[in-house]
Design a protein around this nucleic acid. Structure first.
Lengths: 188, 188
DNA sequence: TAGTTATTTCAGAAATTACTGAAATTACCG
DNA sequence: CGGTAATTTCAGTAATTTCTGAAATAACTA
């Protein structure tokens, strides 16, 4: 791993190792980390050199990261190479991650659950199972709706909400007291 | 896979396949799914039989699930075997998951980032990198604090919050208008 | 306690996933 | 177009992870 300060190197290696927990592989984690701290967009060759990976591996890794929308590519006029970079804004990054994770880790299961719950149970054991699936389905739908709503918030509302933290419960109390949100009202 | 209704079988297989995306393996996913829909706690042998896995694999899978606190074991008087089950309440399950995911997927990185940010940058390139890491660190800390607060909520507040969904932004507006939250807690 | 049953461990096998280099494809330029 | 540089694909290999069966350990009972 060439030309990299030890602390940056440590960061890149860490992302590589965490990659497997996060559902990407080591290479992909490293490429992301490198691009994330880079001052300028980098081309595939530069990435290959700095990380000591094969060119083809870098190509595949970049493709993967693009499929997550975590890196973007751009052309620099007068240069044939593709240059890659990560979005500046960490909140944007987090929202993209939320969206992609939901798509990959939640939606498929939600689909299956809804499908399964269409059938009517034929015996007590099945009925119990269906109840369990219904519980899971309900919760996942709520989480899914929540994340939808999050994704629609403006940047400033998002920041506000994040900074709120432990004050959310107090907001909830407030709602009771002030009776602002009608109990059964549909979303507009 | 014996004695299982096709729809339940589909559910178990699906959990097995999703397992790899969720950071557990197929076997662990299947065991969890089976226990989740079971009417009664099951012992390791029953799991082995119904899923067609090796006894040792089931043992390891159960250990893994216990390390996630997603299944609990209990003794049934007069029976030597251990019986395993999942918590009843899906909200409990979700909160456990949140806690464990944070511990495994967020905390280690937060630790590394904080460590790295102790050092002072020696050149412009490093300074840029440190700024990037600082941004990431701040966001992750906010997410971490948020989840802490979530975990402290009562069941009923949690349910309320979940059902809220898209009304959260309205709450945020409200906060401005009503000036309820003390300003002393200015986030740094 | 010895005898029995249940569980865990672990080394090797099997399966899966990641990585590489060579070849094919694409993109660009004159 | 033809030539060149950049990228992607893909078959084979390497590395990693998962799974198994046998052996060791632990838990219980008479």
């Amino acid at each position: 791993m060439k030309d990299l300060d030890p602390s940056i190197q440590a960061f890149i290696l860490h992302f590589g190792e965490m990659g497997s927990r996060w559902g990407i592989n080591r290479t992909v984690g490293q490429i992301y980390a490198l691009l994330y701290v880079a001052e300028e967009p980098l081309n595939a060759e530069q990435i290959t050199d700095r990380l000591g990976l094969s060119r083809s591996n870098v190509s595949m890794g970049l493709k993967e990261l693009q499929s997550w929308r975590l890196v973007q590519s751009q052309h620099i006029p007068g240069d044939r190479k593709d240059y890659f970079s990560t979005p500046e804004d960490v909140l944007d990054i987090a929202m993209t991650l939320l969206q992609e994770k939901r798509k990959r880790e939640l939606d498929p299961t939600l689909t299956l659950l809804r499908q399964t719950l269409m059938e009517s149970p034929k015996n007590p054991e099945l009925e119990h199972a269906q109840n369990r699936l219904q519980d899971m389905c309900n919760l996942m739908e709520q989480v899914s709706d929540w994340s939808d709503d999050l994704l629609k918030l403006s940047r400033s509302d998002l920041q506000l909400l994040l900074r709120f933290g432990n004050k959310v419960p107090r907001l909830l109390e407030m709602k009771d007291k002030l009776n602002i949100l009608p109990k059964k009202q549909k979303p507009k």
